[in-house]
Measured scan of single mutants.
Amino acid sequence: QVNIAPGSLDKALNQYAAHSGFTLSVDASLTRGKQSNGLHGDYDVESGLQQLLDGSGLQVKPLGNNSWTLEP
């Protein structure tokens, strides 16, 4: 069960990665100043990332080996 409060997208993504045990490689300029609506409930990694990114204009991309990145 994930419980991440709304706020900074950077912070939300870092909390989610730490909670879910995956690696997220992101260029900080992509997420700077963006906000997230947070995340509450049970999600697989990709669904949770998509939910956190909702409205940010960013997309999640798998890199393999439980690693992910973001792209515009």
Results as ranks from 00 to 15, higher is better:
S36M: 00
N14K: 15
G41N: 03
G21V: 04
D27R: 06
I4V: 06
D27P: 09
L49N: 00
S20F: 15
L49M: 07
T23C: 12
A17F: 03
N14D: 11
L30D: 07
V45H: 07
S36F: 01
W68M: 04
Q50S: 10
K11Q: 14
G21T: 05
Y16Q: 01
G48A: 07
S20R: 14
G41Y: 04
L63A: 08
L30H: 06
D42A: 13
S67T: 14
N66E: 04
S67L: 12
L49D: 00
E46C: 14
Q1G: 12
G57Q: 05
G33Y: 07
R32P: 08
D42E: 12
S8L: 09
T31D: 06
D44M: 06
N66G: 09
L52E: 01
G57E: 04
G38P: 01
S29W: 12
L30N: 04
Q50T: 13
Q51E: 09
E71R: 06
T31L: 14
G7A: 07
D44L: 06
W68L: 04
G21K: 07
I4R: 00
I4H: 04
Q59W: 09
H19A: 13
D27K: 07
H19W: 14
E46P: 09
L53K: 00
D42Q: 13
V60E: 03
G48E: 02
T23N: 10
K61N: 05
L49C: 05
S47Q: 11
T31M: 09
L63Y: 07
T69N: 04
A17N: 02
L58Y: 03
H40M: 12
T69K: 12
T23W: 09
G57P: 01
K34N: 03
P6G: 09
Y16M: 02
D44I: 07
G33Q: 03
L9G: 01
D42M: 14
V45G: 03
A5Y: 08
F22D: 02
S25N: 12
D44V: 04
G41P: 00
Q35Y: 15
A17L: 06
V26H: 12
A5Q: 11
Y16G: 00
K61L: 08
N3E: 10
N3V: 11
L9R: 03
A28I: 10
G64D: 06
V2P: 06
D44W: 03
E71L: 12
F22M: 08
H40R: 14
D27Q: 07
G48I: 05
S20W: 15
E46H: 12
K11R: 12
L9Y: 01
L30K: 00
L70Q: 03
E71V: 15
S25L: 15
P62I: 07
S56N: 02
L70W: 00
L53C: 08
V26T: 07
S8N: 10
S29C: 15
G64W: 04
Q15V: 06
Q35P: 03
Q59K: 14
Y43T: 05
G55T: 04
N66T: 05
L70R: 03
A12I: 09
W68C: 05
K11C: 14
A12D: 02
N65W: 08
L13C: 06
L39N: 01
G7D: 07
G38R: 02
T23M: 09
P72D: 07
Y16N: 01
T69S: 12
G38E: 02
D42P: 08
T31E: 06
K11I: 13
V60R: 02
N66P: 01
V2R: 01
